[in-house]
Computed example of a mutant assay.
Amino acid sequence: MIVCVCRRISDREIARHARAGMGFDEIQFELGVATQCGRCEGCVRDVVAQCSASCPTANIQLANHPLESSAWKPPQSSSPTSSAR
């Protein structure tokens, strides 16, 4: 369904961006929704809220380094390593 008539943006396109972790402001900037007449703003916000609630990818934080992640720990080697310099 077309949500933003001015920019011809569908609810599917808005949902795709929201599922990718984008919020309303980012979607507005990217797609231009609710920037002309503004009548679609409420519907766009509803779509973003529904998609964010069902797929909260925006809350995922990635570790700066793969070894810093608590989900994966490298195996401990049984042989001692020489650290003498």
Rank of each mutant, 00 (worst) to 15 (best):
P80R: 07
R39E: 14
A34H: 02
V5F: 06
A49N: 10
Q76V: 15
T35C: 09
A58Y: 13
C4S: 08
A71T: 11
M1E: 11
R16T: 11
A84D: 15
R85L: 07
C37Y: 01
R85D: 13
S54P: 04
A58W: 12
F24E: 04
R39V: 12
V5K: 13
L67T: 05
I60H: 00
C51T: 08
S10G: 04
E30F: 06
V44L: 02
Q61L: 14
R85N: 12
G21N: 05
H17E: 11
C51D: 09
E13M: 01
R16E: 13
Q28I: 00
T35H: 03
V3K: 01
V44A: 06
H17I: 02
D46S: 12
S78Q: 12
A15E: 05
P56H: 06
Q28M: 00
C43H: 15
R45L: 00
Q28F: 00
Q28E: 06
G32L: 03
R16W: 07
A18V: 01
A58F: 09
C40Q: 05
S52L: 09
N59D: 15
F24V: 09
L67E: 04
E26W: 06
Q36R: 14
M22K: 14
S52V: 06
A34W: 00
A53W: 11
L67Y: 07
E41W: 01
C40N: 04
E68R: 08
R45Y: 05
S52F: 08
L67Q: 00
C40I: 01
A71V: 13
S10E: 02
T57K: 11
P74A: 10
A49M: 09
S82F: 06
C6N: 10
S10D: 03
C43I: 15
Q50V: 03
G23D: 14
G32C: 01
A15P: 00
D11M: 03
A84G: 15
C51L: 00
S79P: 06
A49S: 10
Q28K: 08
S54Y: 06
T57L: 13
H65L: 09
V3Y: 01
E30S: 09
S70M: 10
R45N: 03
C4F: 00
V48H: 04
R12S: 15
C40K: 04
F24T: 06
S78A: 11
S69W: 01
S70C: 13
L62V: 11
D25A: 12
L31M: 01
D11F: 02
E30T: 09
P74R: 12
S10Y: 03
G38T: 05
C55S: 14
A58I: 09
I60D: 04
G23E: 10
Q61G: 10
C40S: 03
G38Q: 01
C55M: 12
Q36W: 11
D11E: 09
S69V: 06
E26M: 06
Q50C: 02
I2S: 05
S82P: 13
Q36E: 13
P56V: 03
R16L: 10
V33G: 05
R7S: 08
S83A: 14
W72L: 14
I9T: 10
I14V: 03
E41L: 00
A53Q: 13
S79N: 11
I60S: 00
A49W: 09
A53D: 12
V48T: 02
Q36T: 15
